[in-house]
Amino acid sequence: MKKLILSAIMVVGLAFTAQAQEISKNALGLRLGDNDGFGGEVTYQRGLGDNNRLELDLGWRNSNNYDAVKLAGLYQWVWNIDGGFNWYAGVGGGLANSDYNGNDNNRDGSSTYLFAAGDIGIEYNFDIPLLLSLDFRPEVYFTDDIDKDFGPDIALGIKYQF
């Protein structure tokens, strides 16, 4: 019985590692999403290995009560689903600055704060150097200057790979 369980574990492990995938060494593009206001990010991905990469994002958010600028860094693991489809998950954090625009009576001025972020998504790697992705990025904010401590961010990304 022990040999059967060990053999099953080895076969499953081989199946997960045998799927070849191509992570581009570099990718540059846009990430458009919504986290209490529409915003966009310029995103850069750097492949670090066969199944991991670093993503850096510089973006802005615009809502009724505030405008924000954010810098985020994420370490991501990538797994192949089938052909050009991959899914990925990652962790990271960043720095943000929010400017309140006067529509909220409780806030005025600006605030700079840190945040931690997770990331999970799906992407399609075309035969041409184009990568489309859809991801969910929950963010936890470390500040007393804003009304909330958590922000879910859903975004669509398009990147040029080189």
Rank of each mutant, 00 (worst) to 15 (best):
I154D: 08
Y160N: 08
L6M: 12
S111I: 14
A18E: 11
L56T: 02
M10K: 11
F126Q: 14
V12M: 12
L54K: 08
L134I: 15
K159T: 12
T43E: 02
W79K: 07
A27M: 11
D99A: 14
A89G: 05
G73F: 04
A155H: 00
A20Y: 10
S98W: 06
N35P: 00
E22Q: 08
A96W: 01
R31D: 01
D135N: 06
L14G: 12
G90L: 01
I122T: 03
G59T: 13
L54Y: 13
Y66P: 00
L48D: 09
G102N: 15
S110G: 04
L4G: 12
N26P: 04
A68Q: 03
F126W: 12
A18L: 04
F150Q: 07
G121M: 03
Y160F: 15
G33E: 02
D99R: 05
F162A: 06
S110F: 10
I154S: 15
T17G: 01
D34F: 08
D144I: 14
N62S: 08
G121W: 01
N103H: 11
I154W: 09
N103K: 06
I5C: 08
K2T: 09
G59Y: 06
V140T: 05
D34Q: 14
D144W: 09
L48M: 14
N97C: 12
G109D: 09
N26A: 10
I120W: 11
G93S: 08
F38S: 11
P129W: 15
Q76K: 09
G59F: 03
K159D: 02
D149S: 15
F126I: 08
A117I: 05
A18C: 01
G13M: 06
Q161E: 06
G151E: 07
N86K: 00
G151N: 06
L14K: 12
V140N: 03
E22D: 10
F38W: 09
R31P: 00
K70H: 05
G109I: 04
D50G: 14
E22H: 13
K148G: 10
E41Q: 12
S133N: 13
I5W: 01
V91Y: 13
N26S: 14
N64V: 13
K2V: 13
N125G: 14
V11G: 03
F126M: 08
D127N: 15
L132Q: 02
L54T: 05
G93C: 07
L14P: 13
L58D: 04
I120F: 09
